[in-house]
Nucleic acid binder design. Structure first.
Lengths: 333, 333
DNA sequence: TTGTACGCGTTATCAG
DNA sequence: CTGATAACGCGTACAA
């Protein structure tokens, strides 16, 4: 910038005015400055500019568990979209559900002067937020509750969605609905289980431990669980509490040539294409991301914090055919 | 940092040494400094630190067309992984295939002092790279060729993959293989068409305009194209030149209750779960991302540029059943 | 081992 | 409308 000023024969401040698009500047000088910028190949250093108090990096940070997971990349995209509309850049990082890595990313992003943070708390919790050194900018927790007072939190209605799915399976005549999911140490899974149990209770039923599995970490494990349930004849319907469980159930059905009524939690690309098409509890993932970005940007623009710190987004039950009794193939035709 | 120095009763520089983990520092002073940092809630400003010549932001930028697309989010994840191993952060942005947006993002990221750039050139080309003002750090083009001399480029073997797929369909007895794809103004699509035509030529055949469609922009459009091909009986096999075309073909088959031998380009989540399972030409997307990050990081660490600026990654033909003649359902059992 | 003085690129103040 | 000067937070040369 100094070089440009010298080249154009003006003072530093005039160049600063020029590059900031200020109006009160002599057209002649402006022309000289523009020319100097061109010949010198000058580019503004935004990092240096944001050093000034009151100025900011216009960058927000996003920490999710895995960017390759379509669920999170859709969220990231929605955040990025709104961020860009407001002139913000997004720095994204994956924690792999590890507390240490998550904590390191928080420190790094904060050190890098992000102005806001959108975070999916990792399963393996690390340091408490109260122990983060230094001032913490606006934080929004996504998908799972966090432990920072004053932060906004956005959750899906996991219990409500699970309840709706289970109710639907019961309405189809099922009496022994299996719950195929992951560990209930995960908050979302605990909520889904709660909704499942509530639905059973409404029908005068209680969860049967033989029908509840928390071992479906992968789709293959889920497939084994479902195959076992079918072999023993214990279950007459399956609520798959996550994506991998849904895929596992489909695999098991496919293997055995038979199937049980099925509803899964979380939509997936293949769901509508399978035979029968898989019914799911769907979250509005894009809306979650959009809302998270909106909350951060609102607080950055000085808007007062909302009183409702916790927002629970509704889920939608999408019935495609797999919830009904039927054969392994052709159930939807 | 000044405050910390005052609180600890030492000079600025000593605090600087402390936070940089330098060894030559009196343990007593170190203790005082650590305490001061704790009580003051001091945090290092990495952006300010990188202002120093020789210092850097340790951030790289990634511009893709759409982060919500699993193809690109997988790439982003692979890049992020290697970047983090080297202490780099990744700032990701989507161009939506628009040249103007892409150009603005390049300027913004460079202004933000990223040290390297990994870019998927947008379909609707914008400004030439030679017109980017100011110095340009290492750039790697991904998925499509770019126009910056000296940049590395990573492409998939689109022609080879398309050729292999077409050859396989011909080997299955097809004589009238349809090409269902997008506009050949897109470089990848042009390459895939080339491979398709080459395979035909090897069998003494020539592309038949009636069998070649460039209108499959969405899966519904692709479905219409395939439905039309089946109705007219012109085609006896389908090469779906992208993901959406594959899905469209599956939809069309499902609608009509009949099907043609099919191979698609690019793998997709549902492919193995469909009936019959869809055969595809698969790209090693993770390797593309990893390699891109490696090239950027290599040049950042001062390694000499490789002589082979253009790397073409092999594709893999995954046969799952849909390439064979068969009925609409059950072709893989 | 510690401290002083300066510069990195930018913007704000305030006087001209 | 313009410019001289200080300051943002940090690291480095060099002196103590």
């Amino acid at each position: 910038m100094n070089d440009v000023a010298r080249e154009a024969g003006v003072a530093l401040k005039t160049v600063s005015r020029f590059v900031n698009g200020e109006r009160n500047i002599d057209p002649v000088l402006a022309g000289r400055i523009g020319a100097a910028i061109g010949t010198l190949g000058y580019r503004r250093n935004l990092a240096a500019a944001s050093l000034r108090p009151g100025r900011s990096s216009r960058t927000i940070g996003l920490i999710i568990s895995d960017l390759a997971n379509p669920y999170y990349s859709t969220i990231a995209r929605a955040i990025e979209l709104l961020a860009r509309e407001h002139g913000f850049l997004l720095t994204t990082a994956s924690s792999d559900e590890e507390g240490d890595r998550h904590d390191a990313l928080v420190d790094r992003l904060l050190g890098q002067q992000v102005e806001g943070l959108i975070v999916v708390p990792p399963r393996q919790a690390g340091r408490a937020w109260s122990q983060v050194p230094g001032p913490v900018p606006p934080v929004v927790f996504l998908d799972r509750p966090g432990d920072l007072a004053g932060a906004d939190t956005i959750l899906a209605d996991n219990a409500g969605g699970a309840r709706a799915a289970t109710v639907e399976l019961l309405a189809q005549g099922a009496r022994s609905v299996a719950f195929v999911g992951d560990s209930r140490a995960i908050s979302t899974m605990a909520e889904r289980y709660r909704g499942y149990a509530d639905a059973l209770a409404e029908h005068g039923l209680a969860p049967d431990p033989a029908l509840v599995s928390a071992a479906a970490h992968s789709k293959d494990q889920a497939a084994a669980v479902v195959a076992e349930l079918m072999a023993s004849g214990a279950a007459d319907a399956v609520f798959a509490a996550n994506n991998r469980a849904s895929l596992g159930a489909v695999l098991a059905f496919r293997e055995s040539g038979r199937r049980l009524p099925l509803i899964g939690f979380d939509d997936f690309e293949a769901a509508a294409l399978l035979t029968p098409a898989v019914s799911v509890v769907s979250q509005d993932v894009t809306e979650m991301g959009r809302l998270a970005a909106e909350l951060v940007l609102d607080r950055l623009s000085g808007a007062p914090a909302r009183s409702d710190r916790l927002q629970i987004l509704p889920t939608r039950l999408i019935l495609r055919g797999s919830e009904r009794v039927g054969h392994a193939a052709g159930g939807d035709r």
